[in-house]
């Protein structure tokens, strides 16, 4: 079972209050951005579908996706969801990320605790993750491996 599937089953099996608490835990446990990325919290990395300032960074390490994100703790819903994606998708392959079904938010049982209006912004976050992963994969395909041999492609400047 993938990390994301494990989170889906944990959340969907939980009752309403447990689900709220799981989402809050996720929000509290979002790892801080690495210093080298924290300096790049700019418009390019801002998820504009979100009302709160949410920043997303996608990198490829070999064929694995590395996700980094930041969102304010005053907006725990989006921060919790972003944290879930970071935890669930870091280390996945490009294909695995692109295959995440768009009904993820429903499968997590989030509309029941958030209401339909609030989950719309979250759909945008998932879309953005997929778009950034696609962009990073294309960038890598177009660039010969770096001279230092690490071959890492990144979507940030």
């Amino acid at each position: 079972m993938s990390a994301l599937d494990a989170l889906v089953s944990e959340l969907s099996d939980a009752d309403r209050q447990e689900r709220i608490e799981l989402l809050i835990d996720l929000a509290r446990n979002l790892p801080p951005l690495p210093e080298r990325l924290a300096a790049h919290k700019d418009a390019t990395h801002r998820v504009e579908e979100c009302q709160s300032p949410v920043y997303l960074f996608v990198e490829l390490e070999g064929d694995r996706v590395a996700l980094f994100a930041d969102a304010p703790i005053e907006a725990p819903t989006v921060r919790g969801f972003v944290s879930l994606l970071v935890e669930g998708l870091s280390g996945a392959t490009v294909e695995e990320v692109l295959q995440v079904r768009d009904d993820l938010i429903e499968r997590l049982g989030l509309p029941e605790i958030l209401g339909m209006l609030r989950v719309r912004g979250l759909t945008g976050v998932l879309r953005r993750v997929k778009a950034e992963v696609t962009r990073a994969a294309i960038a890598r395909a177009a660039t010969p491996p770096a001279a230092n041999g690490q071959g890492a492609a990144s979507s940030h400047p």
């Binding site: 709220i20 725990p76 819903t77």
Partner: peptide, 9 residues
């Protein structure tokens, strides 16, 4: 609240 999780935090 706008963010429905805030109360529980």
């Amino acid at each position: 609240d706008e963010d429905v999780l805030l109360y529980d935090m």
